[in-house]
Write a protein that binds this DNA or RNA. Structure first.
Lengths: 222, 222
DNA sequence: ATTTAATTTTAGATTTGTCTAAAATTAATT
DNA sequence: AATTAATTTTAGACAAATCTAAAATTAAAT
């Protein structure tokens, strides 16, 4: 039986989870900053979270989520990202205007609702910003990372890093309309010289050489 | 610019609106009963609602929603019913299990969200229980009320009242599976004797005479 | 028209989440 | 190592929404 938490509790768990991801270590000040609140308020909440066994905490010594706390945080994140996906894919919102609304929707409690929504959306693996969506058990598959040569045909992917960052390469990529975050797919591979034809989102087709392809890394689902 | 209200405030406005519909006059006790709270708490909230000009109130003398209060209540009801429609039509929930979830969803504040949802659902006129959905200006079209003879073919309608309530009529209707709230549609009209063939929801076809048809009133949208 | 009953309101307390200001602890600097 | 600075925690207060118990008002009944 899933316990019900207040929105405030859920927000703290989510914030701590996110801060843990980047630094590993989280401080009272970090959380206060993240949640636009005061350190004293954070301390108050830390005590409550500890009492609910959602957090391991010794005063002045730092804190981290318990297994249970992490589990709850992942469910909030799951809800947030599924709602974002819904807003963009079904209600035609821009990916940049959904965060605020999802901040509210993520606190709707029904588990059945979120599992039905997941199904309705076709079990998407990542949200409109490319962040992975945990499944109903809290597991998520990190997007696969490959260079363009190894990207399957017709698979939409997002540019995640550039190997050779020389000015010449960056000029070429700039010219072709390829940057970090650009969404694209490989439409054709020429066996003769391993050059590729790419469809770049919101643009026309471009061709890149094997050399370029080897240095453009992308991530995609599956 | 739309002001933001607390969930509690919204629940009170909604409750008072609904109680006003039936009785016309609403008492402190009614509201306490409806919201599963105490009369003293209701009085407290009445004062807050008055301060926000959502309510006309003089102590011991009774109260009613102001125009503004009614407007806000209608927007909550709009949200509640649109979400119910969404849950049933898109996420395949049963009409009997959506109320609780909609009680939470109705407090999501974004107006843009609800207008987009409305559009996505095709601007439905009534929710899964047959209650009308106010439009974004708070107007709603009451379902049309006619006897079975005047119900257009293949139009799903809901039995809303019975003219002749004699035991004989009620026995006949009971036997055919027709009761208040039953959803049905007219599949065929026989000009010869004005008898009708009806498809009753979740049941097989039945035939009723003109005499019966004249005494069964239904409501439907459009 | 009193008395009794029901309803409504006030007064004061409680809970949750927040705050400020001051105290306690830990970290940084000379 | 001692002092200063930064961080974290405590203590006490506050706003929102609720509660109980008692007082005020209105309605019902003799």
């Amino acid at each position: 039986m899933s316990v019900k938490y207040t929105s405030s509790t859920e927000n703290y768990l989510k914030a701590i989870f996110h801060l843990q991801k980047s630094d590993g270590i989280v401080t009272t000040n970090d959380v206060a900053n993240e949640l636009q609140t005061r350190p004293a308020s954070v301390t108050d909440m830390l005590k409550k979270l500890k009492a609910q066994k959602l957090l391991i905490y010794e005063k002045y010594k730092g804190f981290k989520l318990s297994n249970e706390g992490r589990k709850v945080a992942l469910q909030i994140i799951r809800k947030h990202r599924l709602w974002e996906y819904f807003l963009v894919e079904k209600l035609s919102f821009g990916w940049d205007e959904v965060h605020e609304i999802a901040e509210e929707l993520e606190h709707i409690s029904s588990k059945k609702l979120i599992d039905r929504l997941d199904e309705y959306l076709g079990f998407p693996k990542s949200d409109p910003h490319g962040d992975p969506i945990p499944d109903s058990n809290g597991k998520f598959t990190l997007p696969k990372q490959v260079d363009l040569l190894n990207l399957p045909l017709n698979k939409v992917a997002e540019v995640s890093s550039i190997g050779d960052q020389s000015p010449e390469m960056l000029e070429l990529l700039g010219d072709k309309g390829i940057a970090l975050g650009t969404k694209l797919e490989v439409k054709k591979k020429f066996a003769f010289d391993n050059s590729l034809e790419l469809k770049i989102k919101n643009q026309s087709m471009v061709t890149v050489s094997e050399h370029v392809a080897k240095n453009v890394f992308v991530k995609y689902d599956e």
